[in-house]
Design a protein around this nucleic acid. Structure first.
Lengths: 189, 189
DNA sequence: GACTCACTGTACCGATTGGTACAATGTCGG
DNA sequence: CCGACATTGTACCAATCGGTACAGTGAGTC
């Protein structure tokens, strides 16, 4: 009965969307099954640890994406400003200009945080640290760079919340525009 | 069998804490009952509309608190800077310096937003509008005041997320300190 | 003392929850 | 062609979900 097994990455992307929209508690196996068109048999074959393993895998997948597309450029780009610019564009693209919400940020808010505390802390921690590094290399003093990085990551998270609350995508793009200026980037791309 | 009926405000505060910690889906009637020490009979007596009415009442209660302690001072204070200072302190106190999370912000993230969309939009909308008004009266140009207000409210929401993710209260107090400067307030209280 | 009515505990409802067990179905390497 | 194994649907499980029904129970009122 072997079917066209979806690539694990595709599968994780679909499951991520369910968690994103419904939260950890709200994402029932029925919803996940419907979204992936996979029965419980398949779901528990791929994720023997059940819902918790699914969530863990989804977080790791997102983390990997940010590692490749955001953290690495911040860390490795010879031109720190270029890395920061890259981060802003990747962020805008990942969150679909505010249409999408940050799964990991959402998990951080309710009690599901306790289950995934390490992964959540690592994700945001690395984001702040690598951004601070790039800011430092682009001329900011260390302490100032750390504060600015923390402010920037928080601004993104807050803008996602506010954009969804207001149901207005412009909230997010305005936030990114301000962020550009604040981080010392040219206004327009 | 009439017992000491808790004040409705106290009751709502307890229920709010359950929603805050577990989210709308995660807050089961069993949890709410345990926290309030009220059986289903009592719960459905006070909230015939069930869980949804409880959440609606809780949001309204929080909204009322912010109306009295944040929005009104921003709107009515003869000295706009004083109103803004008042907002910062009320915010710090309400969120217990980052120990607490914003219920309404959390609801905005997942699908429960659709149920309470109007209340959520109104809450954040009024916060931004009244802060923008105070900023305008304290000398900012209208457009600039609106952007700054939006930035400030988003910064608070983002800081709450980040503080909980990092499990580090200092994240929140640092954010409030930056906010003071950004809004043109003296550094220390 | 009778009546009222806000309040409460308990039993119960069907639906859904996350999870398990397993037999069937293929696909693939040999 | 065969056996191994990845993948699947289905049936099933106890626990819990949100919600209803209702018979009390008692404090206040006349």
């Amino acid at each position: 009965m072997r079917r066209i097994a979806p690539e694990r990455a595709d599968l994780l992307a679909i499951v991520a969307e369910v968690f994103r929209e419904h939260g950890y508690e709200g994402a029932s196996l029925a919803l996940i099954g419907a979204a992936t068109r996979l029965g419980k048999g398949s779901l528990y074959h791929f994720f023997p640890g059940g819902k918790e393993e699914m969530a863990r895998a989804v977080i790791a997948h997102i983390d990997g994406w940010f590692e490749d597309n955001v953290f690495a450029p911040l860390r490795d780009s010879p031109d720190p400003r270029g890395g920061i610019e890259h981060m802003i564009e990747a962020t805008d693209s990942y969150f679909r200009s505010g249409r999408r919400v940050c799964l990991i940020g959402a998990f951080a808010l309710d009690e599901s945080r306790d289950l995934f505390a390490d992964q959540i802390r690592s994700y945001f921690g690395r984001w702040v640290v690598h951004l601070a590094g790039a800011l430092e290399r682009s001329g900011h003093r260390p302490g100032e760079a750390s504060e600015l990085a923390e402010e920037a990551v928080a601004a993104i998270q807050g803008a996602l919340t506010l954009a969804r609350a207001a149901n207005d995508l412009d909230v997010f793009s305005r936030a990114l525009r301000r962020l550009r200026l604040r981080l010392g980037l040219p206004a327009k791309t």
